[in-house]
Design a protein around this nucleic acid. Structure first.
Lengths: 190, 190
DNA sequence: AAAATAGTTAACCGATCGGTCAATCTCTTA
DNA sequence: TAAGAGATTGACCGATCGGTTAACTATTTT
């Protein structure tokens, strides 16, 4: 029961921070939006930073689970899975509540590399790189690590451009690039 | 004299906002760091938002001037210029004061599309796209607009990954992708 | 030299920041 | 049903937020 309450608090806090930003969201607003009093919040989390870290942990879990599942549902072969990344992205960009990558935004507000919030954002990208790397290896890429990093660059660039003017087109731009890139990394036909 | 004073204020405010973020930087800190009293600041700018908009205008001018000049200095042929974008990026990433793209950070803190700060960030990216587009046309790309957008996606992705763990490698990842991409868009040898 | 103008300053405004606390409320256990 | 334990609450803390005010200083104009 306690676990559930805490989880519910984190889940709602995620929505508020995602919509409104980190510094711009006060703990009073979190209390109001979650329906949990400040005193109760501070019983679960020592500081605002601790709450944000919990929020980011949940976001990492949710986002990666969603992306990996969606990739599997949208494609069959390893090569198709690499391209399906960008179909999933396009779906994300089309969602009403889309507001960009929460980790890019977190690292923009907490800039020091040794800040726990910044470090956790870096870790999220590393986990994505790991997953892409595995996909590239299975697909038989000649240099899987490099290809994975290049695809990650495409993904991050697409998110930024989706926020800053391009919308859904950003995902298609990135997918077209990925196609060329993947072909260049494949020894022969797939 | 008045113009100069105001410009100096904006120049110093830029450094502070870039280093410290927007919401996290109070007007008292701006006053202290610039050496200009709050009252004087508010004589030049009606609100903090107005000051930030002036800062972003200066940043846009500085950054594009620097990038375009550096591209010209680093390369000769149109095709080389498209690749030199990423050599310039790598130089930027290597600078001690590098803290990512100020406009990505601004749009992360001011998320509403109709917020003037967000809109100005979008405009900055549009101006970059225009320039890339011209380069692509001169280079004789088959679909210059599309290639320009793809290169812009690569640039933004590289910046994000430079901040979030990859450092200088991000520029090289993006450049390698750009090379493949450009070749695919060129009708024949250059 | 006197008056007007422009620029600067510290002190202050109400609101909100992250965080705390004594009091109350709810529920278990005997 | 009374005692005790946990959870919840609104009021409150000093500090800082964006922004304003009145007094002062220095310069220009006459």
């Amino acid at each position: 029961m306690q676990k559930t309450k805490r989880d519910e608090l984190v889940r709602k806090a995620l929505d508020t921070f995602y919509r409104n930003g980190f510094h711009a969201t006060g703990m009073d607003m979190i209390a109001k939006e979650t329906g949990v009093s400040k005193t109760s919040i501070y019983k679960h989390f020592r500081t605002k930073e601790d709450l944000i870290l919990a929020v980011l942990r949940l976001r990492d879990e949710n986002f990666r689970n969603w992306l990996f599942r969606r990739i599997d549902e949208l494609s069959d072969t390893p090569r198709e899975k690499l391209l399906a990344i960008f179909d999933a992205l396009e779906e994300w960009f089309a969602m009403r509540e889309f507001r960009g990558c929460m980790f890019i935004k977190a690292s923009a507000e907490y800039q020091e590399h040794d800040d726990p919030i910044h470090a956790q954002s870096t870790e999220h990208k590393r986990l994505l790189a790991d997953y892409f790397s595995k996909l590239c290896k299975v697909a038989g890429a000649t240099e899987p690590e490099q290809l994975a990093q290049q695809i990650l660059v495409l993904k991050e660039g697409a998110i930024v451009m989706a926020v800053l003017g391009r919308g859904l087109e950003a995902a298609r731009d990135a997918k077209n690039t990925a196609r060329v890139l993947i072909d260049a990394h494949m020894p022969a036909t797939d």
